[in-house]
């Protein structure tokens, strides 16, 4: 059983500011049903558009996820956006008189939802972060390098286990633990930044590969980068054919007939294949 503080239990039993806001100024949502927790945060500014006048949340998750969300709304009410954007997960945990180490990711989720909501207000963008040049480290929980770096810096993390507790990265299949260690080594000054590493030799463009090599290259990306994410939701994908720059796939398991399969195809499969194979003209067709 978790050892929760009185304050965590209080916010779990009596969550503050639950709900949604009509015509909010900013909305941020992070997490997913598949990941086991998710938070949707919305705020409205005062008439001068200076301070947060109202804030509401909806959370799917455990007691500490609910408490972290509730605490966050209490903390930022009345703040200017500049003040709110400085709130970190450590502040949330401190407000709650601490969280169990394995539950720190709940506070990180709060911070990320707030960042997303503020970005939504400022740019109108609904995506959480600018993901360019931000490699996906943990495919199981969809955690990017910038999120790990941020958690490491704010919370002074030194071990892979801590990173998992704070971001969930590495908490499922564990294959990314080496990559997390490399990020830690860099952050702790034990290793040079990756930019210093030699650039890999220019690969043969995808379009110039033989049909067999194309199939192998696509299959490799599917297995390394796409299937782990789909499998987390009980889905899968198979390669049907490759014709020129047209890749035919079939969704299986829960992905077959899933409402979100088209989103997955465009947002995950096509994007990943284009990135990994270095060919922006690739098209993915689900049959």
């Amino acid at each position: 059983m978790w050892d929760y503080s009185e304050k965590v239990l209080d916010h779990f039993h009596h969550p503050r500011n639950v709900g949604t806001i009509e015509n909010p100024d900013g909305v941020g949502q992070v997490g997913a049903l598949a990941c086991g927790d998710a938070l949707k945060l919305a705020f409205k500014l005062d008439e001068k558009k200076e301070r947060i006048a109202d804030v509401k949340f909806q959370t799917f998750g455990c007691a500490s996820a609910i408490a972290s969300s509730s605490a966050l709304t209490e903390m930022i009410k009345g703040m200017t956006l500049d003040e709110a954007s400085k709130v970190t997960n450590a502040d949330i945990a401190k407000y709650l008189d601490g969280l169990p180490e394995q539950k720190m990711h709940c506070s990180v989720m709060g911070m990320e939802a707030l960042e997303a909501a503020i970005a939504n207000y400022r740019t109108g963008d609904t995506t959480v972060r600018e993901l360019k040049d931000d490699p996906l480290v943990c495919t199981c929980f969809n955690v990017h390098e910038s999120e790990i770096v941020e958690a490491v810096r704010i919370n002074h993390l030194t071990t892979v286990e801590q990173v998992t507790n704070y971001t969930k990265a590495g908490g499922a299949c564990g294959k990314c633990k080496g990559a997390i260690q490399a990020i830690l080594d860099r952050e702790l000054g034990k290793a040079p930044a990756p930019a210093a590493a030699a650039a890999p030799a220019a690969p043969v463009p995808f379009a110039e590969l033989s049909p067999a090599k194309k199939v192998m290259a696509v299959e490799k990306v599917l297995e390394a980068e796409i299937r782990p994410a789909l499998r987390l939701d009980g889905g899968d994908i198979e390669l049907v054919d490759v014709q020129g720059a047209r890749i035919q796939v079939r969704f299986l398991g829960h992905c077959a007939g899933c409402m979100a399969a088209n989103l997955t195809k465009n947002g995950l499969v096509e994007k990943k294949l284009r990135e990994a194979l270095g060919d922006g003209a690739l098209e993915v067709e689900a049959i």
Partner: peptide, 19 residues
């Protein structure tokens, strides 16, 4: 369920593991 952002049928339930 009142606390949860899911299950209201207002939106695609969960577009993948989008963070």
């Amino acid at each position: 369920r009142e606390l949860s952002p899911f299950g209201r049928g207002e939106e695609p339930d969960d577009p993948g593991a989008a963070r």
